[in-house]
């Protein structure tokens, strides 16, 4: 009893009570996507591992899970990239610098950056699936010597919907191989056109050395995983970040179940071999 009483004291606010973060700056990435830079209102930096997410809200407009897209080595800045698709996300994107937002977390599992050491790391991102991988890219580039090839295969709907254009150029200079493709484009686009899975063949991978991380729409990830498997990458060397209806972030609200896992607690990053069976079942 005594132990639990002291636990209660240290966590007196409780896991459902958010902390205030001031919006320092916002950057428009695409027509509907913004990157928000926040700082903790009362000091404590939000230490996180790339792949983790927060539950974030703007005063009473509902809370949403958003992956942290910032640099894990700069935890004093909380960076989140949000796409406005509903009430809560639109409210976040409309927030102005100076405003204070409410944040809980970080929650969930991280990309396997230690396990990836020594491997050729292939990151396959689709659309808004790139921000959850940004922290992993930054950390790996900061520790470039620990990894083999670092390859980013990034697919988007159209050229004007690609994120982080200038940064990707810097990453290239720091040793990241980047192939980008879009689903369709006009004649001004001289890059690849076609689905992101076609980049896998073009990257010239040695399957035995590959550790893959993928994030994007679930359909895309299924295609990516199938293509990686065709090239000989084992499913326990593929990590996916799954999205479900995460509401509490702490595994107690029941909304984000995918068979035996609670995505907010056991994920969002999973080894594909652990969730493969469940991702195949429709309407699970």
């Amino acid at each position: 009893m005594l132990a639990s009483a002291s636990d209660t004291a240290t966590a007196s606010a409780g896991p459902l009570v958010p902390a205030p973060f001031r919006l320092l700056a916002k950057r428009r990435e695409t027509a509907d996507t913004w990157t928000l830079e926040l700082e903790p209102r009362h000091g404590t930096p939000l230490e996180f591992a790339p792949g983790q997410f927060t539950m974030i809200s703007r005063g009473g407009c509902g809370e949403v899970p958003i992956s942290i897209s910032g640099d894990p080595d700069e935890p004093e800045r909380l960076v989140q990239t949000v796409r406005a698709v509903g009430l809560a996300t639109s409210a976040l994107c409309e927030a102005e610098p100076g405003e204070v937002l409410s944040v809980r977390g970080p929650f969930g599992t991280a990309w396997p950056l230690e396990e990836a050491e020594g491997a050729d790391v292939v990151i396959v991102a689709g659309g808004i699936g790139l921000p959850p991988l940004r922290g992993a890219v930054l950390r790996m580039l900061a520790q470039r010597e620990r990894y083999g090839r670092l390859v980013l295969l990034y697919g988007g709907r159209a050229p004007d919907q690609l994120l982080f254009g200038e940064q990707i150029q810097q990453w290239r200079e720091q040793g990241l191989e980047v192939l980008i493709t879009v689903d369709s484009a006009g004649p001004e686009w001289i890059g690849h056109v076609g689905v992101v899975t076609r980049l896998i063949g073009r990257a010239g991978l040695d399957a035995s050395r590959v550790l893959a991380m993928t994030c994007g729409p679930e359909v895309m990830m299924r295609f990516v995983v199938a293509t990686l498997a065709d090239t000989g990458v084992q499913s326990d060397r593929i990590h996916v970040s799954i999205e479900r209806n995460m509401q509490c972030g702490i595994g107690v609200c029941g909304h984000c179940q995918l068979g035996p896992v609670l995505v907010c607690r056991d994920g969002p990053v999973f080894r594909y071999s652990e969730v493969e069976r469940w991702m195949r079942v429709r309407e699970l």
């Binding site: 459902l16 001031r22 005063g59």
Partner: peptide, 18 residues
């Protein structure tokens, strides 16, 4: 009610009661 708070003009939630 998991919490109740007052919203300051800058959006900060304060005076949480749980």
């Amino acid at each position: 009610t998991v919490w109740r708070a007052r919203r300051k003009p800058d959006g900060e939630l304060t005076d949480f009661s749980t």
